[in-house]
């Protein structure tokens, strides 16, 4: 992974998050939660910064980041796609939708397209089971989706 330098304002925000938790090592998971919210992922530089603020080895931070699936080191696309794999969506064919997204975008779950436009993830239930199968792109919910609709949806997004 390329070592991207963090923007100054991000550095400041990460430091503020750590300080809010008194740089307490026991709050590592909470700090990572909030830090990930800043850019949607936890780049290497950010993990190093958190490690030095909390005075713990960066290997510990990386260990926690790779242990919990919630944390990610992959930047999200401008249009993050989440396919619901909850029971209702699954039985109504969300797996086929997922396969179609993978095929069209050429990426796997958890990855981002090289142009940074789309990223693909799965989630479990958005509370719209009546519309199953459901896909979320950004904040927008697409219900009763069929594989054939996907091309048009992707084409419409900038």
């Amino acid at each position: 992974m390329a070592e991207l330098k963090l923007a100054c304002n991000i550095v400041k925000q990460v430091e503020e998050i750590c300080e809010k938790y008194n740089n307490d090592q026991g709050e590592l998971i909470n700090i990572l939660h909030e830090a990930q919210h800043l850019q949607g992922y936890l780049p290497e530089e950010m993990q190093r910064l958190i490690a030095s603020k909390l005075n713990i080895p960066v290997s510990k931070v990386y260990g926690v980041v790779t242990f919990y699936t919630f944390f990610t080191m992959t930047p999200k696309g401008r249009h993050p796609i989440s396919v619901c794999m909850g029971t209702a969506c699954y039985v109504r064919g969300s797996e086929k939708l997922l396969e179609e997204f993978k095929r069209r975008l050429g990426i796997d779950v958890g990855e981002t397209t090289p142009d940074g436009k789309f990223s693909l993830d799965c989630l479990r239930c958005v509370g719209a089971c009546g519309l199953a199968p459901v896909v979320m792109i950004g904040e927008k919910v697409y219900g009763r989706l069929q594989a054939a609709d996907i091309k048009n949806i992707l084409d419409e997004l900038e």
């Binding site: 713990i56 080895p57 960066v58 290997s59 510990k60 990386y62 260990g63 790779t66 242990f67």
Partner: peptide, 15 residues
């Protein structure tokens, strides 16, 4: 590596 030597080079990753 971590507690005794405080080098922090080795740690468990993934699950």
């Amino acid at each position: 590596c971590n507690e005794v030597q405080t080098v922090g080079a080795l740690g468990a990753i993934r699950r």
